[in-house]
Amino acid sequence: MKTFTYRTATDVAQGLEPGATFLAGGTNLVDLMKLGVATPDVLVDVNRLGLGEVGDLPGGGLRIGAGVRNSDLAADPRVRRDYPVLSEALLAGASGQLRNMATTAGNLLQRTRCRYFMDATMPCNKRRPGSGCPAREGDHRNLAILGASPSCVATHPSDMAVALAALDAVVRISGPAGERTVPVTELHRLPGDTPDRDTVLEHGELITAVDVPSLGFAARSAYRKVRDRASYAFAVGSVAAAAQITDGTVTDVRLAFGAVAHKPWRAFAAEEALRGRPATRESFRAAADAELAAAEPLRDNAFKVPLIRNLVASVLEGLA
């Protein structure tokens, strides 16, 4: 591991010097430092900033502190009651040990697990801009089918972020230039020709909290994840869904897909196709197809298209 200087953050707005990065739970960052993929000169530890509480928002909804551990959030009675999709997504991710360290903001800002990104000896446009992308012709079975670019086909690996995208959650950000908010659906970028930038955050900006607005029908919501083994593996495809179904008709719905793109993929087209439609398997599959029409699978990941279609139908049937 490259040497670095360590210090403790004292203020959410203090920002970062060039070459510095924030340390939260460390479950991804420390690993990337060991691999030589992350090489910060300075680590600024944000664990003592007091961002570890879940609070109620006025008028309903929750404010989740950036430092709340994934295990505590998954077990929070308000999350389990009002947003089961969020608790389920968290519990579908990682292991008990990792969830005890990983934080809300760290989970959002974790890096792709694309093998070429994780291997410092390989070309990768995300890690070393302009060096190329071996994934397009190489190992891309678990990479993107939506929103990718010639320079990058990486996927965002988070489960939690998929649920937050479906729930219209909003990220609260603090930095030297002040405070701002960004919807979770707009936090992560599509790769384009600058895949080295995962998110819209500027250097030194710090996520302080995630607000989840009140959404009555989210009490009927679910997360379903498909992976290569029964537990403790990243998704090859996942769906977060909340549905309001009245007299057999879908009156409102939230859908997001995981492991298909450079960001948690909010399925706005599928939602639009589903509102006002009968709550049947045919409608669910047609709605999924409305979203997946834009899919551009690679040689070895075309299976994700029917996988997501079937997942959408299965999850929504479970909520109907």
Binding site: L23, G26, T27, V30, D31, K34, L43, G96, Q97, N100
Partner: peptide, 27 residues
């Protein structure tokens, strides 16, 4: 594994189980 994938390094940190290989002691 030294990468948080195997659990052989699991200890209890302030009573909670964690992978000690992914934690910088200084923190």
């Amino acid at each position: 594994c030294d990468h948080g994938q195997c659990g052989a390094c699991t200890v209890l940190l302030d009573g909670r189980r964690v992978n000690s290989c992914l934690i910088l002691a200084i923190s």
